[in-house]
């Protein structure tokens, strides 16, 4: 973190990002363990779920893929659902792109730390993003996510049903909390309401993942404001 280099990660922002996601780590560990358990039960074996957590690093898509593989779903359906779920990272990473500095290979590696949580808390308003906050948050979440997946795969079915523990409600609560921190203006509130309405309308008719992508169209409400 040599200060003076313009492309250096900023220590204060790294720490800020790390601190902001620290309270999330118990939920991330619980989610990672339950992903490992489910993936193992879905017949993904030991190594594949752990490698998936290390390379994909996006919980909801991983759950979608594992659950489809475990059910009657095809490989194509599993891939399709997971890729659609993660397609939201394209507009998200384009939004955060100008905040990333340094050589290309470094941007490639650091961009992999973009997840919903790190992206949301690195937003600095007016469409600006703090790369160091994304990296600080991601570096905390990443090892917890990968290691807890491995633990889940090892623990196997001994844990019981994660839904009995209410863990499936922890994530909408998490996203609601992040949403509240983002809705500070009237247009932001309108985009949130329209996005939610699009998602509700599409859940019954579209594949998992599509409602999230389609809901991102609500951001077009901001087009005429410039």
């Amino acid at each position: 973190m040599a200060s003076g280099r313009p492309s250096a990660l900023r220590g204060a922002s790294l720490r800020e990002g790390a601190r902001a996601v620290a309270p999330l780590t118990p939920a991330v560990v619980a989610f990672g363990v339950s992903f490992g358990v489910l993936a193992r039960a879905s017949g993904m074996g030991f190594a594949a779920p752990v490698v998936m957590s290390a390379t994909t690093f996006a919980g909801s898509a991983q759950f979608a893929a594992a659950s489809i593989l475990g059910g009657a779903g095809s490989v194509a359906a599993a891939i399709g659902a997971a890729v659609l779920l993660n397609a939201r990272y394209a507009p998200m990473s384009i939004a955060a792109g100008p905040g990333f500095e340094g050589p290309r290979w470094r941007r490639l590696f650091l961009s992999q730390l973009i997840v919903d949580e790190s992206w949301a808390l690195a937003a600095r308003g007016a469409g600006r993003f703090d790369m160091s906050a994304i990296v600080g948050a991601g570096l905390v979440l990443y090892p917890f996510w990968v290691v807890s997946t491995a633990i889940g795969v090892l623990v196997g079915e001994g844990l019981g049903d994660p839904n009995r523990l209410g863990l499936d409600a922890a994530f909408p609560a998490l996203f609601l909390a992040l949403l509240v921190s983002q809705v500070r203006t009237r247009p932001a509130l309108a985009a949130a309401l329209v996005g939610a309405a699009i998602a509700v309308a599409l859940i019954p008719v579209a594949s998992p993942g599509v409602p999230i992508i389609a809901a991102s169209a609500a951001c077009l409400l901001g087009w005429r404001r410039v």
Binding site: D116, L189, I212, A215, G222
Partner: peptide, 14 residues
């Protein structure tokens, strides 16, 4: 892009 976060987060909640 400013409105992407609220729209996508709301969809994730739902």
């Amino acid at each position: 892009i400013e409105l992407l976060a609220p729209a996508v987060l709301a969809a994730l909640v739902v």
